[in-house]
Design a protein around this nucleic acid. Structure first.
Length: 592
RNA sequence: GGCGCUGUAGCUCAGUUGGUUAGAGCGCCUGCCUGUCACGCAGGAGGUCGUGGGUUCGAGUCCCAUCAGCGUCGCCA
């Protein structure tokens, strides 16, 4: 006599033939042939076909005939090999089926608002409203499981490298700079507020002072910024910090972790070490501080080729000290004039004043440049520098250098997208190094940190002398396929240096004391040199999954307006609740 | 906050120049069907054309406003 085996819907094979099995799950689809009913039973492990024959199991057949999509049932019967020729090779369990002896309905389902058994296109608002149903669909089942495997790989790897997972608080203090904070009113302290962390930055530094040497956390972070595609008000970071590291130490651990993550979660081999570029080189060659290295199409400074040009716009640009940058598109000569105009119009939306082009057509170059400017010497020189050949096109941008780089960088990505050169199955990592310590704040014209104010200056720059904008930082970004995965730095551990940085950034002594006094005080007690990095989990999983939207890798995401359409949040609260919190609302009247 | 796209059956969509009773596929309901696996066949139900106003003899279609979803830019030390 066979013992009854409780099985998932993904595990039975012909090896189990003859055993009695009990399966529970959702009705994926049914096929009622009148005399014979097929049920595809689903759980997260797979699909198993249950067959009900009214001659041998009349009661089960009656139940089976009443089943509808998403009913939850328990089916019991013998595992048997499917008749020859009826195997389903698309299913892991496709060699067998369950010959049902009994079927119990555990719960009925209303007709779902959208199909569950496939990934057919459905309005995202509807999916978010019924997220628990959306989660049952194959796509989200896959990406949430992928996320689990990836995060588990991170924990395993960092554990093996001596890191401790430590939680840091969610109710903390408002930070003066950076993104807007979410505030939480305190009932017990009238008029005072906690803030939700934008990152565990200060706490992880204090954990280093606290002697834990190697810390990590899968940390939830909150930023109350304006909405944007691929942004969520709460998101997750792999946050880590270590004592006594060099930049090389952090890089080595990250490369190991990412390679392990991609291997363990995806089976993808990632070559290490990753290529490295300086910040300046990334901007010069790719027009971005997060270059997509899956393809070349580099930028070229072709200013010298235009010395003495008849083309007034470029001549003027050169005389003002602006740059002329070129980008060559392989096969670009096949673009029509109209296509070129569209590209130029696009460049304008990126902030370009215009876009000149030279099409290296087989019957001679065509160009938006005036004939007089398009000398053979110029064409030869551009071809030599950009390595463009007949059949290609060369695009030219003249502007202030950093602006021209940014525009050319966007154009480069756009053309690559058009040409399908950004293969989501290919993973091109790189490090961007030698960031400036400070940037010019466009609004106030003051200094702002390129990363954050705790970043240590590069060796040799500790004196902070000379032009602050020329100072380099021990700051490193890891980039994948044109997306910044994470950003880190060696931190300042010397309280005097930290004070100097705050002063350069325009903080008064009072400000520093009030906002960062606890950190500076901690540094007075033998703070070890330390550094670390934080990586965006949602983005990494998105790139692994080859998906389009970060919402595809989060179980319960907010919509584009940062609302949860399922639970309907945020919502106004009762006046009594506000009163208890000592909070009064001041809502602007609706516009009329 | 700005700009763009989209709102027609439960879902995905079509709907001509403004003109009779607004359609299709899937889903749903009923019946038939013993080897299907997106089963098949026959029949049926299902619509405030997002909402409000306007133009017109007549509006799904044109205009204005508004709401919602998605995308995009500013913003994100």
């Amino acid at each position: 006599m066979n013992q009854l085996r409780r099985a998932t819907c993904g595990e039975l094979t012909s090896a189990d033939e003859g055993s009695a099995a009990l399966l529970k799950g959702w009705v994926n689809t049914t096929r009622d042939h009148g005399g014979l009913i097929f049920i595809d039973l689903r759980d997260r492990f797979g699909l198993t076909q249950v067959v009900v024959d009214p001659r041998s199991a009349p009661a089960a057949a009656e139940v089976a005939a009443s089943l509808r999509s998403e009913d939850v049932i328990a089916a019991q019967g013998l595992v048997r090999r499917r008749p020859a020729g009826t195997e389903n090779r698309k299913l892991a369990t496709g060699e067998i089926e369950i010959a049902a002896e009994s079927i119990d309905v555990l719960n009925r389902s209303k007709t779902p608002p959208f199909p569950i058994h496939d990934d057919s296109d459905v309005d995202e608002g509807l999916r978010l409203r019924y997220r628990y149903l959306d989660l049952r669909r194959p796509h989200l089942q896959r990406s949430i499981a992928l996320r689990h495997r990836a995060v588990k790989a991170v924990r395993d790897y960092l554990d093996s490298r001596g890191f401790l997972e430590i939680e840091t608080p969610m109710l903390i203090k408002q930070t003066p700079e950076g993104a807007r904070d979410f505030l939480v009113p305190s009932r017990l302290h009238a008029g005072a507020f906690y803030a939700l962390p934008q990152s565990p930055q200060l706490f992880k530094q204090l954990l280093m002072v606290g002697g834990f040497h190697r810390y990590f956390q899968i940390a939830r972070c909150f930023r109350d910024e304006d909405t944007r595609a691929d942004r969520q008000p709460e998101f997750t970071q792999i946050d880590l910090e270590m004592t006594f590291p060099t930049q090389e130490d952090v890089i080595e651990i990250m490369e190991g972790m990412l390679a392990h993550m991609f291997e363990a979660a995806l089976g993808a081999k990632v070559a290490t070490p990753f290529p490295r570029l300086s910040h300046a080189e990334a901007l010069r060659r790719f027009g971005s501080d997060k270059p997509d290295l899956r393809f070349a199409m580099e930028l070229h400074d072709v200013g010298p080729a235009f010395t003495g040009t008849e083309f007034k716009i470029f001549a003027d640009a050169l005389s003002r000290g602006n740059a002329i940058l070129a980008l060559a598109e392989t096969g670009g000569a096949s673009r029509s004039r109209r296509d070129m105009d569209a590209l130029a119009a696009l460049a304008t939306t990126f902030g370009a004043k215009g876009l000149a082009w030279i099409s290296l057509a087989p019957d001679g170059p065509k160009s938006s440049l005036p004939k007089s400017a398009l000398t053979p010497q110029l064409v030869d020189s551009l071809k030599a520098q950009t390595k463009a050949q007949e059949g290609d096109a060369i695009y030219l941008l003249a502007d202030e250098r950093s602006l021209a780089q940014a525009i050319a960088g966007k154009l480069r990505l756009h053309i690559a997208d058009e040409r399908g050169m950004r293969d989501p199955k290919q993973f091109a990592f790189c490090w961007v190094l030698d960031f400036p310590l400070f940037e010019r704040d466009e609004e106030s014209q003051g200094l702002q940190p390129a990363h954050h104010p705790f970043t240590a200056p590069a060796p040799g720059s500790e004196a902070l002398s000379g032009d602050p904008l020329q100072l380099r930082a021990q700051h490193y970004d890891v980039v994948l396929n044109g997306m910044e995965l994470g950003s880190g730095s060696i931190r300042i551990h010397d309280p005097a240096l930290q004070r100097k940085i705050f002063t350069l950034l325009g903080y008064s002594d009072d400000d520093v004391e009030r906002k960062f006094g606890f950190l500076l005080e901690a540094f007075e007690y033998g703070a070890p040199p330390h550094g670390g990095i934080a990586l965006g989990v949602d983005r990494i999983i998105l790139l692994m999954a080859g998906g389009e939207s970060i919402r595809e890798v989060i179980a319960f995401p907010k919509n584009q307006r940062f609302q949860d359409l399922m639970i309907n949040a945020p919502t106004p609260v009762e006046p009594a609740a506000l009163k208890e919190l000592h909070v009064r609302t001041d809502i602007p009247p609706p516009r009329t």
